[in-house]
Nucleic acid binder design. Structure first.
Lengths: 191, 191
DNA sequence: CCTGTTCGTTCACCCAGGTTAATAAATTAC
DNA sequence: GTAATTTATTAACCTGGGTGAACGAACAGG
């Protein structure tokens, strides 16, 4: 169960055998049914997770009640609202499991201990944050500079493997248009 | 000259007197004329900077030659294309000084030494990255979920102090519309 | 002080996405 | 296996931003 997580951490820093045991102890497996929330909008994100199995989406609700999907994460990726987690502010984003999922969960306090307790803990914290940062910027800038049609093309490119697992309305929500409009885009492109 | 920088670092980690001297040595002041580039699009960002004085904007060029302004930073803030800096990839974003500016510059290698050489160097690296991350996410999500009119309102709110220093076309570029459209928005709002 | 340039606004026309509603297709429930 | 629900597509009409051009205002250079 924890094997994939330890592989993931070991790819970034050196982890001793005792440290591996500590990790197995502090990352608690939790299971979620389809449509369950790992984190609800407005709550403080007090835990970080490693997805052992499943698929989550990040949701922002607009004032008018509309939902916007801003990202997806699947098995072997980390999940967390980092902004909320780091400064203990209410999360602007919900994290919803859109497939039955198993997530290895570590509390904020235990993660802080991770940073100080493991020999290369601080370095891991820096690297993981740098990675998230780069990933976020890249995603966001392509979304930001492009029109819906190009965003859809880039979505296809970036999330090919997720395509068969995602309903159309999550895709349109991610592309930033309504379902009828995504239909029109698909029609245009098919010519 | 380095005082503001050292204050900024000291607000995050403890810095000894020797470490302060090291900082003064490694952060080199450089001056820029209006419209000079701190970093050109496509180049690898090999330096990070602390703006002692001035104002920069972050520019992305689209394929059609259009420019998009995605952020501003002013005196007492850090400037860098972190994504490019961290993984030495060509920067998708240019950094242009839109006022005469003085920037304290540290090289990538010296910053890595900073992380290992200073007692709390790794912690600083983690904190500064976490800060950038949170800041970026917040900005981006408001831009992402809102229509141009609301984006303009939020721009007014977030950058009030910069308003008198920014021409209209950088604002429209930031809001994501063309100048005529920003005019219409301003007109609508004035009623 | 005048001149040439840059900048901001306005106009008319066009187009892509929003909205609402109807229908068809695919899932799910029983 | 059929009924009920959810999901995807299409159509008609509406709206807000893009485009190109014109105009006036502000500004810089000589």
């Amino acid at each position: 169960m924890h094997e994939a997580l330890i592989n993931s951490i070991s790819s970034l820093i050196h982890v001793s055998e005792e440290e591996k045991e500590w990790i197995k102890e502090k990352f608690i497996p939790r299971t979620y049914k389809k449509n369950d929330y790992f984190l609800r909008e407005g709550q403080v994100c007090r835990e970080a997770g490693f997805i052992a199995e499943g698929l989550v989406r990040y949701v922002i609700s607009k004032e008018n009640g509309e939902e916007l999907t801003v990202d997806f994460n699947k098995e072997l990726e980390y999940t967390c609202n980092y902004a909320s987690f780091l400064d203990k502010s209410p999360s602007g984003t919900g994290i919803q499991c859109i497939e039955p999922s198993t997530i290895l969960v570590i509390s904020y306090d235990d993660l802080q201990t991770f940073y100080t307790h493991l020999a290369e803990g601080q370095k891991f914290g820096r690297l993981i944050c740098e990675f998230l940062y780069v990933q976020t910027i890249k995603k966001v800038s392509t979304m930001y500079i492009n029109q819906p049609e190009q965003r859809y093309l880039q979505f296809l490119d970036a999330y090919t493997s997720l395509l068969p697992r995602l309903p159309q309305y999550y895709i349109s929500s991610y592309v930033g248009v309504k379902p009828p409009s995504l239909s029109r885009i698909r029609k245009r492109l098919s010519r």
